[in-house]
Design a protein around this nucleic acid. Structure first.
Lengths: 133, 133
DNA sequence: CTGACTGCAAACGTTTTGCACGGTA
DNA sequence: TACCGTGCAAAACGTTTGCAGTCAG
């Protein structure tokens, strides 16, 4: 019983081959959009339905097992949930990269100044990645 | 000839009543999603089409007259283009608020460390606004 | 007056739903 | 075995397109 099986069960989700494959693909690829995920899944399950992809993505998001990342001028991608981090998005190749960057002090100050109770911080930086210049 | 008329013409866009109304609504409301914008526009133009809303929003975004803001777990909102700033989004009431917060130093450092050429930075902070607690 | 814009209806792509069957626990 | 999950087909949804008529410049 591998890692993802355990985590899925902890969320009262059955560890089906399809779900384990999604987890595995996200682990390997880091970030992927629905369309590409479907394409990759089709290689492993020749008759998988897009509906299954959507149902699983949705339920896994609801259970905080994975997370949606909304990207300016592009389709959302999904990633395994982990510690808070930011994203670099390349406008050339579309590649999404995780980065950690500590902005807490300034953000907390600002939240306090606005009497705002912070629960999450989403930073997406767009530009050109090192492979595209 | 008012302000928005001038700006629209600078982008080779005709200053139609519908476009001026959109600009005015964005100015007054700050941020609005398509659905609400359509509802407000219907009050001013009783037979306006959703297609017109979409066409105008799209062309105004392409011309950098307005900007889309993607929000976690919610519909995108649109705002008039202005200097770079961040957004506070209330998970209770949905209100979106502009804030300026200078994170450039840290972000630039990080971009440089990753050999990434930065072109835009999008920060959305979610939580509970001052009116909701 | 002319090209750009509007409103309508139809088309389109994406996401969700309902249902019968199949598989996990 | 009981229920949850899958796959399929249809439906729903948001957005885009084509077209004929209208309006801004």
């Amino acid at each position: 019983m591998n890692n993802y099986t355990t985590i899925l069960r902890q969320h009262n989700l059955k560890a089906t081959p399809q779900r384990l494959a999604i987890a595995d693909i996200l682990y390997v690829q880091g970030h992927i959009n629905i369309e590409s995920l479907y394409a990759v899944m089709l290689k492993k399950f020749n008759s998988i339905s897009l509906a299954t992809i959507y149902k699983n993505i949705n339920i896994m998001v609801e259970n905080s097992f994975i997370q949606e990342v909304k990207i300016p001028h592009a389709k959302s991608v999904y990633e395994l949930k982990k510690e808070e981090h930011s994203h670099l998005v390349c406008n050339e190749c579309g590649e999404v990269q995780d980065v950690t960057i500590d902005l807490d002090t300034k953000i907390d100050e600002m939240a306090q100044a606005n009497n705002f109770i912070l629960s999450s911080s989403n930073l997406v930086l767009a530009g050109i990645c090192k492979n595209c210049h």
